[in-house]
Design a protein around this nucleic acid. Structure first.
Lengths: 203, 203
DNA sequence: CCTGCGATATATCATCCTGATATGTTGTGG
DNA sequence: CCACAACATATCAGGATGATATATCGCAGG
């Protein structure tokens, strides 16, 4: 999937709005933000940074290569280019975070919006979650059709795989329903926690 | 993800070994075979067909409706090119289906192997399922680490998303365990069926 | 001590895939 | 009888990836 430019750019702005970063670290954080651990190449990241720079939404912070006075181990490094968000960039990011377009229902776009939900207004949060839910409900319908229609035609293994995919999609809808409920009742800072340490899992 | 050439080629051979097909229909069936509904472009399919043709693993069946018209030149009816697998192609496919390499643990490779499991020997089926399981267990471990380590650092929404991803990965391991059990006891043609019509799903 | 390895860090490029687009045919509901 | 959707093949600009190159740093083990 070609990763829409706007999604990537706003994800970069979002990550940089926490603190200035250099490319290497930025890339790692983006991998977390854009869907579960979908790393992107530098061949995509650097052009994106250049685009944002051209629009004055980010700027380079020249890191002093000089070793001031003391000679601690943290000097003389290779030039690390640190990028920082500008005032214009912050404005642009805030606008995007609160104006969900169709990109917000897609996988990457939704993950990116969710990653910055704490900077999104409550009513907008609900719009995004509900939009995402109906997007997924469409997918569930498509899969259900396919499983029902293909029941006779495909072999047992393929059917099992399709059923597994369908179950997963339904599970995702249920997860979104939970999020929506939490959103409607109160701010969700204290969800049930859902046992970080999961059960066993026999060898 | 760039879709490995070998996986695509063997998936094509597998689909064509059922019956000869033209490109349009072939593509649709490949979308089912290669992971849940991951359609590929003609820009990938046609070169793949040309590669297979060059290696004499498939051949074109010229289907000409033969309209003996005297109409202007070039107005001949557009040819529907039907591709068929050759004897060499069948041999190559059988070899692949029963010799799982590392590609069989990855998403597309596994889906492709599973789609042709009925043409795979039992002991090989087990090898593939177990290889895939350990591949997924690695993923679960990575996600678990990330959720545990990042628990304090990320906000509640991102944590929820990560937890959701982890749950999904664990669910996939359980599914594979079921398949492996069925494989070990007998041929799995009659899995519990798991209710094609799923429960309700409140609006 | 110093050697090698893995992580940190930036950058480029050939290769190849996707999404858009073009063109034309068949079938069908209004 | 027309419009519109599905069928069918094909090309290409644009762009993402994975490989590769370069260089520093921290550290484990010989």
């Amino acid at each position: 999937m070609p990763m829409r430019h706007d999604v990537l750019e706003f994800a970069v702005l979002g990550v940089l709005s926490d603190s200035p970063l250099h490319g290497y670290e930025l890339r790692k954080r983006l991998a977390v933000v854009l869907g579960p651990f979908r790393a992107l190449s530098y061949g995509s990241l650097y052009p994106c940074l250049r685009r944002l720079q051209a629009r004055r939404l980010i700027e380079e912070l020249a890191v002093t290569p000089a070793t001031e006075s003391t000679a601690p181990p943290l000097s003389a490094r290779r030039a690390r280019v640190v990028y920082a968000i500008t005032a214009d960039g912050k404005e642009e990011f805030a606008t995007w975070a609160n104006s969900p377009g169709p990109e917000a229902w897609e996988d990457e776009g939704f993950a990116a919006h969710l990653a910055f939900f704490s900077r999104t207004e409550e009513r907008v949060r609900l719009r995004i979650l509900e939009g995402r839910r109906s997007r997924l409900e469409e997918r569930v319908e498509a899969l259900r059709d396919s499983v029902v229609r293909g029941r006779a035609k495909v072999d047992a293994y393929t059917l099992t795989l399709q059923q597994h995919g369908l179950d997963g999609a339904e599970r995702e809808v249920r997860w979104l329903n939970e999020l929506i409920q939490n959103e409607q009742s109160s701010t969700p800072q204290s969800r049930p926690a859902q046992a970080i340490t999961t059960p066993e899992e026999q060898a």
